[in-house]
Amino acid sequence: MALHLLKLSVGSESVESLEDFVARRMQSAGTDHTWHQTRMVPKRQNELLDGGSIYWVIKGQILARQLLLDIVPFTDDSGISRCRFLLDPVLARTERRPKRPFQGWRYLRSEEAPPDAPFGSEDDGLPSEMRDELNDLGIF
C-alpha cells in the first residue's frame, strides 16, 4: 500500500491558483512535469514511489493531490542538502478534509488519505467559491 505526503500549499488561494502556478512553472522550465523542493529527504522513498501522492492543504483544507513521479536528493550551490519531489502536473481534487497548519511535510498513510472527489477531478466548471459554499451547505 502506497504512502503519501501531506504538504501546505503556501500562497495558494484555491486549487485553481495551484494549477495556474504548476502551468507557469512548467512553461518557464520547459518540462512536462513539475516539482516541489524541500530541505528534508524522506527516509521512506520506496513506499512513497509505490503510487504515492502529495496531498495539498489549501486554506486549512486538504483539497487536491499530485502523483509523485520521483524523489531526487541533491546539494545546492551553497552546499546545502535539498530534495526535489518530481510531480505529475495533473491535480486530482479530493474530498475536503480540514487540516491545521504545520511546518514541512508529513507522511500520510493511505487509509488516512481523503478519497478523490466523486466529481471535480476534471474541471467541473464551478468556481471554487461556489463549490466551497455548496460544500458548507452539505450539498457536496
Rank of each mutant, 00 (worst) to 15 (best):
L5A: 02
L5F: 02
L5Q: 01
L6P: 04
L6Q: 13
K7N: 10
V10I: 15
V15F: 03
S17F: 06
S17A: 14
L18Q: 14
D20P: 00
F21D: 07
A23V: 01
A23F: 03
R25T: 10
S28M: 13
G30M: 07
G30I: 09
W35M: 06
H36K: 02
R39E: 08
R39H: 07
R44I: 03
Q45F: 02
G52T: 01
Y55N: 11
W56N: 12
W56Y: 12
I58F: 06
K59I: 05
K59W: 03
I62S: 06
I71H: 14
P73D: 04
D77C: 04
S78K: 14
S78M: 12
R84Q: 15
F85V: 01
F85N: 00
L86E: 15
L86G: 00
T94K: 02
R97F: 09
P101I: 11
S110Y: 08
S110N: 13
E112V: 01
P114M: 07
P114Q: 08
P114N: 07
D116G: 00
D116T: 12
A117M: 08
P118Y: 09
G120Q: 09
G120P: 09
L126N: 08
P127S: 15
E129H: 12
E133K: 11
L137D: 09
I139S: 02
